[in-house]
Amino acid sequence: MTNSADVLIRNNVKVMGEGSKTLLLAHGFGCDQNMWRFLTPELAKHFTIVLFDYVGSGASDISQYNKSRYGQLEGYAEDVIDICDALQLTDAILVGHSVSSIIGAIAAIQKPELFSKLIMVCPSPCFLNFPPEYLGGFEKEDLQELLNLMDKNYIGWANYLAPLVMGTTHSDDLIGELSGSFCSTDPVIAKNFAEATFLSDYRHLLKQINQPSLILQSENDALAATAVGEFMASEIKHSELNIIAADGHCLHMTHPEAITRSIIEYVK
């Protein structure tokens, strides 16, 4: 059993706000807790907010990184469970961006008492195409090529992926920030997380989610089309799909007011 204080240091956990309900904000691949900063001032007026970095991301304790644990999303779900245990959380609301929606779902299925609701920002259970029944958006060869680029030219990979993820219509500052965040992650760790994210298929898990779930999808997202959101809403028992008129895969950064409003309405 990991010591609570060690977990809080390991995952760079920060707690703010005063509310009776707790939101656990889980960042996406290649990001860190700083990506939530446009939401936290308003959310902290209503809720207690828990921010953290996965091991290997942001200001986490990289010495705790273990390639086999973090070779699949279940390892990241263990981080989420450890943090909840360290803070003695139950009935929290998990807000996950992108892959963290699925990481959060894994944690919520393993320990249902931890979460009363799930909020998924631009989620996808699988980025791969399995025609005709499911189109995740990418052929396996294309993803493999993207992952190979990480080995060959990591900076080039970051500069290619960042505008695709953020949405090219958004400011150079935000695109630059995401690219910088990718570049500040250890390339070996990033590659391991990328493979766990982009080559996995967690569609089978969706039917096991019992918590009410809100899916916030972007109308125009190069990584997760609206059809992916519709598929998830059809598979998760108690789910609502909210498609936001927006571009890109980082709605919490590009459209923070809409996301903040959706979270407050859904949780209250």
Rank of each mutant, 00 (worst) to 15 (best):
I81N: 13
L128A: 00
Q144T: 15
I119M: 10
A92E: 03
S98Y: 09
L118E: 05
M150W: 02
N129P: 04
I93S: 11
E133G: 04
S98F: 10
P112E: 07
G136I: 05
I106Y: 10
D85Q: 15
L146D: 09
L118R: 04
F115C: 03
S116N: 06
C126E: 00
I119L: 01
L128K: 05
M120T: 03
H97Q: 15
P132L: 08
I106G: 07
D151M: 04
S124C: 01
S98H: 11
N148P: 06
E145Y: 02
Y154R: 06
F115G: 07
L118S: 03
D151Q: 14
W157T: 10
I103V: 15
P123G: 02
F130K: 01
M120V: 02
V95Q: 13
I83L: 12
G137H: 06
L147H: 00
K152N: 07
I102N: 11
Y134P: 02
N148G: 07
I93W: 14
I155P: 09
G136S: 00
L87M: 12
L118H: 01
G156L: 09
P125S: 01
D82K: 00
C84M: 12
I102D: 05
L143N: 03
D151G: 04
F115Q: 00
S100E: 15
I109R: 08
P125T: 04
W157P: 09
V95H: 02
D91N: 15
F130G: 01
D91V: 13
